[in-house]
Amino acid sequence: MARTLRRPLVASMLLAVGATLSMAAARAESADTFPSKPITIIVNFGAGGPTDLPPRRIAAYLEKKFKQPVVVENRTGGAGVVGLSAVARAAPDGYTLGTFSASPTVIAPRLRTVPYNARKDFTPVAQIAEYAMPLCVLPTRPWKSVADLMAHARANPGAVTYSTVGTGSGQHIFMEALAKAEKVKLAHVPFSGGAGGIAALLGGHVQGALDAALAKHAATGECRALASVGSARHPALPDVPTFKELGYTIDAALWLGLAGPAGMPQAIVDKLSAAILEATEDPSYKDLLKQLLLGDKTAGSAAFRAQVAADDERMAAMMNDLGMTAPK
């Protein structure tokens, strides 16, 4: 009695496991006239953030233009590596694109093993935005400029602490390069994710912080932006100089773009690239970038690919110089 009752239970549970796993493994396949079926955009960070919302807006535009569903799928993990691995493994037919930014592509592979090669395994399709990050201090501190802060750091070695979203982040590399250029020692206090590091600055627990989301706090006067990292002045902080204007020549890879797997047919790349750039010209898209505190810088496939290649080499040199390499 007991035995006969138990067996269907175990069997049905096994069945449930099997059914769910096979559903997860099901995948789409290729086509000829593009696009003749739904396109997937894999976002490698969580829903709702500055990496997620611009591609979502573009997806909505493409959906209208191509009359095909464009699905945005958040595949998070490994600081962006998990989502990009899925893009690298997808069929190069134009039906799978993914968000493409510097930290999992030209930075992470130098710090740990990733299951792809940023230059060989992807086809950059278009740049859709540029990250912009201000370096901030509390308004109650005496430092009014980057030079003030650096002078303080020089006089008190190791006493100036700064927070970022994490070790090996673009922010961290930039600050270390700044310290090296100024020949000072800054103490890095990494936080995992943005909010912790911002709270640490606003609460006065660290002296400085470099973070994209700080721009809104700087705009309301809660913190003082000394300079911003970006190719142009920050859209929300028009009075704050860029590091370039101040004479620093520190490279930072700030692009956010879309890329597909390597080996995509050129005709499909061109078609997608043109449509995406069209989407970025939409005034509502430009408004969105402003809201998200992102820089309005876009590029087509060829220019974006060249930028990625150049930044890959620059980052390699820069990180080597800073001694930031994977422990062997």
Partner: peptide, 18 residues
């Protein structure tokens, strides 16, 4: 590792890196 960013006990698996 939350401070150094190096991998610990992941056996090379990306899924364990988080």
């Amino acid at each position: 590792d939350p401070i150094l960013g190096s991998e610990r006990f992941t056996f090379g698996s990306t899924s364990l890196a988080d």
